[in-house]
Design a protein around this nucleic acid. Structure first.
Length: 839
RNA sequence: GCCCGGGUGGCGGAAUGGCAGACGCUGAGGACUUAAAAUCCUCCGGGGAUUUUUUCCUCAUGUGGGUUCGACUCCCACCCCGGGCACCA
């Protein structure tokens, strides 16, 4: 590794040689392989598993660098650390790439995995590679199928028709993300249609309340915004459902309406149904407006289901020609159909209260419906029908509301809901925004859904002993039409497990979020072929102590994982109710203001950086350039600075190492010079603050800055060998090395060896700072007059208040500002500051 | 519209009620060198005064108020930027 540098007269820092050397030693000594060990506290640190997509760039690298620092610090702290890595290997990009390059998704995926793994290993991340998993392997996905069957047994998996985005040219379902400006992403002139097709769903709504409630357990451990986003997504509303009888139509029954503002029901001037409301056909039967109405409904149904299109669409509606009866006062109100009423939420019908709801106001204004006022603001100008310019949606006092007139809104809601229950035309209800999780995908590269359809027995689950249902090896992939599995007769045609007769397999595959919902349990027991995992092993390692990943997964992956966790707990497989005690969402690495990604073509390859500067420098850069939770803009110049720093550290140690190898580190300061004492003090102060930054704040950027400062202080003491005795210098350099070890592990190992240690860092513990050595003997105290800095004095640490003030008032700049004035108050912060308040 | 973040030099950022701008980058000047690279040293928020390589004053952390001896930090209101959800009844 050591080339001779004629200028410096010694070996130069050669990161590639050092890194290869230590990675080889770590592998030989199996340093990062972990087993259960009851004698140590456990620590499970995990970075979200990557989708292997080609180039491993600095954005990926940052994520793993953060996790690796945590893993290495915890090891130095004496924890038994589980730190695994695997591959989220199924998914659409592999299938599209396979079509484009005329290859097989498996070949494409495995190439990418090999590439990712090679680069991760080049960076020396401290993974236990024996635990590696790949979700596209049958040994893994058979357990997706197993979980699916367990959910099917419990009624948590079911089939239903649902409204989806449909491209008529592709003849397939599109994800919301694949709808661009209302059209198919591949056929930009083809509007996406809303279509109802049969799909598999997982009943996430069965856990809506728990998913919401348990967020409280995560407070403090998860970022607030992730908790807020999940709460938002689950969207709990409490209210009441009210039954409105249909007037003048025998046998039409009642229309159910959900409302959170039952107190405004006396102001309802219409009922509005969703265009696909099941009762609509009955209401329109025999009506003269029927043909026209059906055409309008058909048009409304074609509207895109994309959220922002729906939100901005103009309100549209028509009268159904019928009326309903307000159960509170018997008033007849007309029934309308409106495009803004969603069948998917609540009951698919609303009561329109134009005076007290913005949407209803807009609808009523367009169609000339009355806007009776039934709530008045508690203060300010009362509302009148002629001056009402916008809906008043706040709480106030009920008016024109029969027996409830005069009640405050909250009291009216309570009383009216209770009365509705007593009288039997309504009940209190809680509604969630969360929908069941649609998992069917008409794609090849995913887990086959393990059910068959038999002409005689109907839907039959594949028996557990027949798992895995394997993907057919050589599919015809076109990216069009239904699932590629449907075109494989050898896959589709099977026998019914129940009657032995001919049957068809389900040809849809599972959403790949299934794969990533439970992968972290598999790491605990990756080669189990009898069960997804051994509960005892998971019991030892779980919950994940620290989960690290991008904010992009704040809802989908993390919500599905939480759902799986609760289902698994109810299946008796695990005992905990939340998968991860702490979550950290790191910022993205950007270039040109946008996240690095292959599709944008703005990636800076991690390998390229490792070749140019060494992987330790690459790691240090991502840790130093910004606090880990913030986005960071890639800078080629800043990484140069990090490289300079590590070079300086290397040269410093290299220059003195030979003389220090035999020395004993010493903390004896009796005969030390002032410079030496100051440097030892600085070292221990740095250690104290770096320890804090690692343990409690994760301010790696500040920790690195502190070590840089220490290095600058050491270098300011030239010539070092004259000013600092060998024992002290060794102590200083060793502590510096240990502090750097979690962030630049290869260089730290090399420095440690240069300092005379033969056994590497693997058994070294994180050092404790020495409070006595860190203590300042002399401090600079700031002197303020009326809160403004007027001078600084150097005094012995711990000097009494009286003495400090006595010294302070003598200070030239201070005295000048005190001249002729009376000190009315003085504030003394020991060893820090004096503030004299003068009148 | 609702819910989260966030606004500090030329740039990334530091400072968790006590010296605003640590540390790094960029830039300027210098040393070494035949030269370059590397390395090392000095300076680097604005305005002003001054006895001008000195000493000091003053303004400055999105804006305006407030609390406090003291506010980048806490409170209130507003502006701007980023993200999430969005006819959710």
């Amino acid at each position: 590794m050591t080339e001779y540098d004629p200028q410096a007269g010694g070996p130069v820092y050669d990161p590639q040689a050092i890194e290869a050397k230590w990675q080889k030693r770590w592998a030989e000594a199996r340093v990062f392989e972990t087993e259960m060990d009851a004698s140590k506290p456990k620590y499970y640190v995990l970075e979200m598993l990557p989708y292997p997509s080609g180039t491993l760039h600095m954005g990926h690298m940052r994520n793993y660098a953060i996790g690796d620092v945590v893993a290495r610090v915890k090891r130095m702290r004496g924890y038994n650390v589980l730190h695994p890595m695997g591959w989220d290997a199924f998914g659409l990009p592999a299938e599209n790439a396979a079509i484009e390059h005329n290859t097989h998704p498996r070949a494409w995926t495995n190439n990418n995995i090999a590439e990712f793994k090679r680069v991760l290993q080049l960076f020396g991340f401290s993974y236990d590679w024996r635990r590696e998993i790949s979700t596209c392997e049958p040994e893994y996905y058979r357990w997706n199928q197993w979980f699916f069957l367990r959910m099917l047994e419990r009624g948590l998996a079911y089939r239903k028709k649902s409204r989806v985005n449909w491209c008529p040219k592709c003849a397939t379902v599109l994800a919301n993300e694949q709808v661009v400006n209302g059209c198919c992403w591949r056929h930009e002139d083809t509007p996406v249609e809303a279509k109802e097709i049969e799909q598999w769903f997982l009943r996430t709504t069965a856990y809506a309340d728990q998913l919401l409630e348990d967020l409280k357990q995560l407070e403090g451990g998860w970022p607030e915004r992730v908790i807020a986003m999940q709460r938002n997504w689950i969207g709990k509303s409490q209210g009441a459902t009210i039954q409105f009888a249909v007037a003048d139509l025998a046998g039409a029954g009642t229309i159910e309406v959900f409302t959170t503002r039952i107190d405004t029901i006396y102001g309802a001037s219409a009922l509005i149904l969703a265009p696909n409301h099941p009762l609509l056909a009955k209401l329109l039967a025999g009506s003269p407006a029927r043909a026209d109405a059906e055409a309008r409904v058909a048009k409304m149904r074609q509207m895109s289901v994309k959220a922002e299109d729906v939100a901005t669409a103009e309100k549209d509606g028509f009268s159904a020609g019928r009326s309903a009866v307000n159960p509170f006062n018997g008033a007849k109100i007309p029934i309308w159909v409106g495009n803004f009423v969603l069948m998917e939420y609540g009951t698919g019908a609303i009561m329109a209260v134009p005076a007290h709801d913005e949407r209803d106001f807009e609808f009523a204004a367009k169609y000339g419906l009355p806007k009776p006022i039934v709530v008045q603001p508690r203060e300010g100008v009362p509302l009148t029908g002629s001056t009402l310019e916008a809906a008043f949606t706040e709480y106030g006092a009920s008016v024109n509301s029969g027996p409830y007139t005069g009640l405050e809104s909250a009291a009216a809601i309570e009383k009216m809901a209770a009365d509705a229950e007593v009288k039997g035309f309504g009940k209190r209800e809680t509604v969630f925004r969360l929908k069941d999780w649609g998992i069917s995908r008409q794609r090849y590269w995913g887990t086959p859904i393990p059910v068959v359809y038999c002409g005689k027995d109907g839907l039959v689950p594949v028996p557990e002993e027949q798992l895995p249902v394997l993907l057919p090896p050589n599919p015809k992939l076109t990216g069009m039409g239904e699932s590629p599995l449907a075109a494989e007769p050898s896959f589709v045609n099977t026998t019914c497990p129940r009657c032995g007769g001919p049957a068809r397999r389900e040809t849809d595959t599972m959403d790949t979020f299934m794969d990533s919902s439970w992968y972290f349990y598999r790491y605990c027991d990756p080669h189990n072929d009898k069960a997804p995992f051994d509960s005892a092993k998971v019991g030892y390692w779980f919950p994940i102590d620290q989960y690290i990943g991008g904010i992009t997964h704040a809802i989908l992956h993390l919500l599905y994982s939480r759902f799986f966790c609760k289902v698994m707990r109810d299946l008796g497989l695990i005992r905990h109710g939340e998968p991860a005690a702490r979550l950290f969402t790191q910022g993205m690495v950007q270039k040109g203001g946008v996240a690095m990604s292959k599709s944008r073509g703005n990636v800076v390859g991690a390998e390229e950086m490792a070749r140019k500067y060494g992987c330790d420098t690459g790691r240090l850069y991502t840790l130093f350039a910004a606090p880990p939770e913030k986005d960071l803009e890639w800078s080629a110049k800043d990484i140069e600075g990090c490289s300079r720093f590590l070079n300086k550290v290397f040269r410093l140690v290299e220059r003195h190492a030979a003389k220090l190898q035999a020395a004993q580190p010493t903390t004896d300061s009796a005969s030390a010079t002032e410079a030496e004492k100051a440097l030892v003090r600085k070292t221990h102060q740095t250690l104290r603050r770096v320890t804090q930054d690692f343990e409690t704040r994760w301010h790696f950027n500040s920790a690195i800055a502190l070590i840089m400062e220490l290095l600058n202080d050491v270098q300011a003491q030239a010539p070092l060998e004259e000013k600092i005795r060998a024992g002290s210098l060794k102590e200083i350099l060793e502590l510096m090395t240990l502090m750097l070890a979690p962030m630049v592990p290869h260089l730290a190992e090399e420095l440690w060896e240069m300092l005379g240690h033969a056994n590497g860092l693997r058994n070294e513990r994180w050092p404790e700072y020495d409070a006595a050595l860190a203590k300042e003997v002399e401090v600079e105290v700031v002197v303020q007059v009326n809160g403004r800095v007027r001078g600084r004095i150097r005094v012995a640490a711990g000097l009494s208040e009286e003495e400090v003030v006595a010294r302070a008032v003598e200070e030239k700049g201070v005295a000048q500002h005190l001249d002729g004035k009376r000190v009315v108050k003085r504030i003394v912060v020991p060893d820090k500051l004096v503030n004299l308040v003068v009148a």
